[in-house]
C-alpha cells in the first residue's frame, strides 16, 4: 500500500501542499495531470529522492518518511530511464539482488525469469547504449521489478515510444500487474493509458490531488 498523508513538497519554482492519497495493496493507480504540475516530484518524494517539508509517507503501513531511498523497497522507473551506461542488460537485472547479497543461483534464476516475461532474453549480454526505446524501457522495468519491491513507481513510461511499441508495453504492464500483483503508481498524461491499465485514478490539478 502507498499512503501519502498531508504531504507538502517545495521544489524550486513550485510547491505542493496538503497532498493525501492512498493506493491499496495490489492496486494499479494512475496519476494524471498536465506536464510541469509536479507529478514527477510526487514520485521522487515517495521513493525518497526528494525531501518533503511536512506530512508522512507510508509503504505497507510503515512510515518511511525519513528513510533512505535504498531502504524503502520501491521499484522506480524514471521518465529518463537512467540506465547504467557501464553495465550490461543482465547486470541491470542483477544489480539490486547483488546489493542484497542474494546467492548467484537465485540471481541467475531471477534474471532469466524477468528476461522471459519482458521479452529481452536475447539482449542480456548487451550494453545499454545500443538499445531501442522500447528495449530500454523493458530493461528499466526489469531493473525496478528485480528485487520484488513492495511498490512500483512508473513515471510516464510510455511517452517516448511509438504507437505499436506502446501497445506492446500496455500488454506487458497488464501482464506484470497480473503476475506480480505489485502495488503500482503510474504517472501519465494519456487518458488511453489510464483506461487500459488503471484500477484507480488520481488527478493532480493546481497542487491538489483528487481521486476520480
Amino acid at each position: 500500500m502507498i499512503e501519502l498523508d498531508d504531504v507538502s513538497i517545495h521544489a524550486g519554482e513550485f510547491s505542493l501542499s496538503g497532498i493525501s492519497m492512498q493506493v491499496p495493496r495490489g492496486h494499479y493507480a494512475v496519476l494524471m495531470g498536465r506536464t510541469g504540475r509536479g507529478k514527477t516530484t510526487i514520485l521522487e518524494s515517495i521513493c525518497g529522492l526528494r525531501k518533503i517539508t511536512s506530512g508522512r509517507i507510508l509503504i505497507d503501513g510503515v512510515d518511511v518518511t525519513t528513510w533512505l531511498p535504498g531502504d524503502r523497497q520501491i521499484g522506480y522507473v524514471p521518465q529518463d530511464l537512467a540506465l547504467f551506461p557501464t553495465l550490461t542488460v543482465a547486470q541491470h537485472l542483477a544489480f539490486a539482488l547483488r546489493l542484497r547479497k542474494r546467492p548467484q543461483s537465485e540471481i541467475d534464476e531471477r534474471i532469466s525469469q524477468l528476461a522471459e516475461v519482458l521479452g529481452i532474453m536475447r539482449l542480456l549480454g548487451r550494453k545499454v547504449d545500443a538499445l531501442s526505446g522500447g528495449e530500454s524501457q523493458r530493461v528499466a522495468l526489469g531493473r525496478a521489478l528485480s528485487f520484488r519491491p513492495a511498490v512500483l513507481l512508473l513515471d510516464e513510461p510510455l511517452s517516448a515510444l511509438d504507437e505499436s511499441t506502446r501497445a506492446e508495453m500496455h500488454e506487458l504492464l497488464k501482464r506484470v500487474k497480473k503476475t506480480t500483483g505489485v502495488t503500482t503508481l503510474h504517472v501519465t498524461h494519456s487518458n488511453e493509458e489510464a483506461e487500459v491499465l488503471a484500477d484507480q485514478r488520481f488527478e493532480l490539478n493546481d497542487g491538489v490531488v483528487t481521486e476520480g
Partner: peptide, 24 residues
C-alpha cells in the same frame, strides 16, 4: 540520475558512487 536510481534500488550514496559514478 543513474546514481539516484541506484539509490532507489538499494544503494547508499557511497555504493552509488563506487558502483555507478566511478566506473563511468
Amino acid at each position: 540520475r543513474a546514481e539516484d536510481v541506484a539509490r532507489t534500488l538499494g544503494c547508499t550514496r557511497g555504493q552509488a558512487f563506487m558502483q555507478i559514478a566511478l566506473p563511468q
